[in-house]
Design a protein around this nucleic acid. Structure first.
Length: 570
RNA sequence: GACUCGAUAGCUCAGCUGGUAGAGCAUAACACUUUUAAUGUUAGGGUCCUGGGUUCGAGCCCCAGUCGAGUCACCA
């Protein structure tokens, strides 16, 4: 491992601290009495409460002026300025603590604990006059320095998305606002959870490793269980398990679930993502629509200071309930002029052709309709809109429409032209369900690699009887994107999936020494071959000649090699 | 998958008919007792993503690759 100049200096500082008897990584905790936020918000009203404060955090900047100096301390709440005065920190003759430890050995990025009193500087900034400080953890790698001036201009921002996502810890430390996004995400989830709990629904956990990946149309990740010697799949949905629980007598269950889909990645798709699914017995999709819009309105208000309107890109989206409801066939009629109700597969193909939508042989009716809707209608629904009553072919787990058996009781919630939620009156007729699965099997044989598998255990559960049930799933990542106004899913996931980092190990002379090359020759061998592997590929005679050649050329002051020497190394 | 753009110091970026690299911040040293992107002076710091090619000579031109970003397609 080769270290940069600054990394070496920090290791030296680490040593210097230890030589002074200061442990840079102490085992003890540090008692914290205040946070930066508390001090900044309450000091002016009651300064008497802040004559003795202890807080801990990371040093974010340092400014020294002779016998006094400043630093910014960032704790989990905010940043606050520290004032270090030499004679305050070092009341006695020995000024080491100021001159050496504070001035030279304390680096940006270090965690320290400080004790002192709060005051206001001449410049009017609330600061802590430090009486004593304690190293809590030394930082060996320099953080990128992002500076903001009085006008709020940001300098040298740490912006490279690759580095920000790969090293989210750094992103969180130096880029203001990143943490807020994730705090909001957390709040969205807890707000939703509270809403469900208040209705008496039960949060449950269901298997992530599934023998049959059911509940959605998607390509799964496959893995293998050694003891059972069977393939297992990472779940693409948890729907079928939650419905089993309704069969078992739960009235309302929900789960915040990580789902996994082995498909493309882009700024709206990550291989693992979070979906909340909820199932409520004795309800239908009409009820669920009303429940969903009220729930969303509630969540949006909670995370958005009581406002239902949120900015998304250059638009504003209003989550005020009730949302508009449009049947999918009406939507298609409105945006394409075609009435596709009752059309067969061939007729739909013709419509696609006239609309300029590409199709292929593997597409059934469902996919064709989905294409038309996705291509021509979906982008038009900016404000939250329920699209309802999908054709039966598109929804194999959904109950047929009470008024039209060619349709289903399903809705999707479209926001900003994207699907945010999906819900059904759940199919609980086991015979119908079996028939629908069998249609999926035919699609699969036709080449649709996303068609659903038949889950016989799920059918068996339905045969015992499932009460009428409404179910709904909502994409938490997408919801978070809307509510934080981010245009990519990577911004709302702490650790989005990335291609593995290439760790190109740079060979050093030491590697050659380890391989048996004498130290005298290691640098030359590195020069000649670049890596141990390359050298091993060469013949001993070639190595012998090449290295001696190099010795001559570079006038190395070392004895010439014999062939026997070289044979001894490899 | 296609196209476009990018990769140079710890970070943000510059670089020129093709002549072995430069700024700001960060770092180090000195000065300075309340600074505000602190300041002033000085110094150090680089496999210019990788591999080939053209050339007397490549960070720059050509080819191939890696990684990333954006647009589109595919996929939900």
């Amino acid at each position: 491992m080769s270290l940069s100049e600054q990394e070496i200096q920090r290791r030296q500082a680490l040593e210097a601290l230890r030589n002074l008897g200061i442990e840079p990584y102490p085992a003890e905790g540090f008692e914290v009495t205040h946070t930066a936020e508390q001090i900044l918000s309450a000091f002016e009203n009651s300064p008497e409460d802040f004559v003795n404060v202890k807080l801990a955090g990371r040093i974010m900047s340092k400014r020294i002026m002779g016998k006094a100096g400043f630093a910014d301390l960032k704790d989990h709440t905010d940043r606050i300025q520290l004032y270090f005065n030499r004679d305050e920190i070092c009341p006695n003759e020995d000024k080491t603590l100021y001159n050496e430890v504070y001035k030279k050995l304390l680096d940006i990025g270090d965690f320290i604990g400080v004790e002192g009193s709060v005051f206001v500087t001449r410049m009017g900034e609330i600061s802590i006059q430090v009486r004593s400080f304690t190293f809590l953890s030394k930082s060996l790698k320099p953080l990128p320095i992002v500076k903001t001036d009085a006008e709020g201009n940001v300098y040298d921002a740490f912006t490279d998305p690759e580095q920000r996502y790969r090293q989210r810890y750094v992103d969180l430390v130096v880029n203001p606002g990143v943490k807020e996004t994730f705090l909001k995400r957390s709040k969205i989830i807890s707000s939703m959870r509270n809403y469900f709990d208040a209705h008496g629904y039960i949060e449950v956990e269901t298997p992530i490793l599934q023998p049959i990946p059911g509940g959605a149309a998607a390509r799964p990740f496959i893995t293998h269980h050694n003891a059972l010697d069977i393939p297992l799949y990472l779940r693409i949905a948890n729907e079928l398990y939650l419905k089993r629980l309704i069969v078992g007598g739960f009235d309302g269950v929900y789960e915040f679930a990580k789902d996994f889909r082995n498909e493309g990645m882009d700024r709206t798709h990550n291989p693992e993502f979070t979906v909340m699914e909820i199932y409520v017995a004795y309800k239908d999709y009409q009820w669920m629509m009303a429940f969903t819009e009220k729930m969303l309105e509630h969540v949006v208000k909670e995370v958005n200071n009581g406002d239902t309107e949120v900015p998304v890109g250059d638009r504003k989206i209003n989550f005020q309930a009730p949302f508009k409801r449009v049947a999918i066939l009406d939507a298609i009629k409105e945006h394409t002029g075609f009435d596709i109700a009752g059309m067969n597969e061939q007729e739909l193909r013709d419509v696609c052709k006239q609309l300029g939508i590409e199709t292929d042989e593997s597409m059934g009716k469902a996919k064709l309709i989905d294409e038309i809707f996705g291509e021509k209608c979906e982008p038009n629904y900016i404000q939250p809109t329920f699209i309802t009553d999908y054709p039966v072919e598109m929804s194999p787990l959904c109950k047929k429409h009470r008024n039209d058996p060619s349709l289903t009781e399903r809705f999707e919630l479209m926001v900003n032209g994207k699907e945010l939620a999906n819900a059904y009156t759940e199919l609980n007729d086991p015979i119908d369900q079996r028939a629908r699965f069998e249609e999926q099997l035919q699609l699969s044989e036709k080449g649709d690699d996303e068609a659903m598998f038949i889950d016989h255990d799920f059918l068996r559960a339905l045969e015992y009887g499932m009460p009428p049930t409404a179910g709904m799933g909502i994409g938490i990542d997408r919801l978070t994107m809307f509510l934080t106004n981010k245009s990519s899913i990577q911004e709302v996931l702490f650790f989005p999936q990335m291609r593995p980092e290439k760790t190109k190990s740079v060979p050093t002379p030491a590697d050659f020494v380890k391989a048996g090359v004498p130290e005298l020759w290691a640098a030359a061998a590195l020069d000649a071959y670049g890596s141990v592997e390359e050298m091993r590929k060469a013949k001993d005679t070639q190595i012998h000649q090449k290295l001696n050649g190099l010795r001559k050329k570079k006038k190395l002051d070392i004895p010439a090699l014999s062939l026997e020497d070289v044979q001894g190394w490899i």
